[in-house]
C-alpha cells in the first residue's frame, strides 16, 4: 500500500474545503451541545428527581448507533448538513451533560454560601461563582465531546455529507488507498489541534488556576 503523493498535491484545494467543512460540522455540534446542556445541567443539578431522568435519557441516546441516528433523522431533515449536525449534537449531549452536572456538584458549598451571604442573587451566583469554578470539569467534557465529534463526522458520509469522511467513500469505491490514509491522518490532526486549542482556551478562561500550577 503506497501513498500517491502527487494525488495529494493535485487535491490540496479539495482537501482544504473538506477539512473546513469537517471542522465546521463538529464545532457547530459541540457549540449547540453546550448551549443545550448548560441549562439542562443546571436543572439536573438543582432538581434532584430530574437528575436521574435527564442523565438516563442522554445515556440511552448515546447507545443508539451513529449511523442509525443519521438515518432516523432522514425523514425529518433529509440528506443535509442539518442532519449531520443534529446527529452529532445528540452524541455530544451525553458527555457534556454528565460533566457539567459533575462540575456544578464539585463547587464548594462554602463558595456558594459566601456569595449568598454577600447578597448575590442566585442567577448571578450561578454565572459568576458556580460556572467559573465548575469550568475545569465542564471543559474536560467539551474536550471529549469535540474529539468524539471530529471522529464521528465521517460517519455522515453515508448520508452524503461527512467532510473528510468523503475521502473514505471515494478511496473505497475506486480501490485507491491514498485518500483514505490522508482522511484518517487529517482527522487525527484536527482532533489533536482542536484539543490543544481547547486546553489553551481553558488556560485563558481560568487565570486564577495558573498561580497554583
Amino acid at each position: 500500500m503506497t501513498i500517491d503523493w502527487s494525488w495529494i498535491g493535485d487535491h490540496t484545494d479539495d482537501l482544504t474545503t473538506l477539512t473546513i467543512s469537517h471542522l465546521q460540522a463538529a464545532l457547530t455540534a459541540v457549540f449547540l451541545g453546550v448551549l443545550i446542556s448548560l441549562p439542562l445541567a443546571v436543572i439536573a443539578h438543582r432538581v434532584r428527581p430530574l437528575r436521574g431522568f435527564l442523565l438516563g435519557v442522554s445515556n440511552v441516546l448515546f447507545t443508539i448507533p451513529s449511523i442509525a441516528v443519521f438515518v432516523l433523522l432522514l425523514p425529518v431533515s433529509g440528506l443535509t448538513r442539518t442532519t449531520t449536525v443534529i446527529g452529532l449534537t445528540i452524541y455530544t449531549l451525553v458527555v457534556l451533560l454528565r460533566n457539567t452536572v459533575e462540575g456544578l456538584d464539585s463547587v464548594p458549598v462554602k463558595a456558594k454560601e459566601a456569595a449568598k451571604a454577600m447578597g448575590t442573587r442566585p442567577l448571578r451566583t450561578l454565572l459568576t461563582v458556580e460556572f467559573p469554578l465548575a469550568l475545569p470539569v465542564i471543559m474536560a467534557g467539551v474536550r471529549i465531546a469535540t474529539v468524539m465529534s471530529i471522529s464521528l463526522v465521517s460517519v455522515a458520509t453515508y448520508i452524503g455529507d461527512g467532510g473528510l469522511g468523503q475521502l473514505f467513500t471515494d478511496g473505497f469505491q475506486r480501490n485507491f488507498p491514498t485518500p483514505v490514509i490522508v482522511g484518517v491522518v487529517l482527522t487525527l490532526l484536527l482532533a489533536v489541534v482542536a484539543d490543544a486549542a481547547l486546553v489553551a482556551l481553558q488556560y485563558v478562561l481560568t487565570p486564577w488556576r495558573r498561580r497554583r500550577a
Binding site: L164, F168, G171, T187
Partner: peptide
C-alpha cells in the same frame, strides 16, 4: 483513550480492507 476516540472507524475499515 483519546486516540481511540479520535480514530475514524469508517476510515480504518476502508484502509484495512484496501490493504
Amino acid at each position: 483513550a483519546s486516540f481511540g476516540r479520535a480514530l475514524p472507524t469508517v476510515g480504518l475499515v476502508v484502509l484495512v480492507f484496501l490493504a
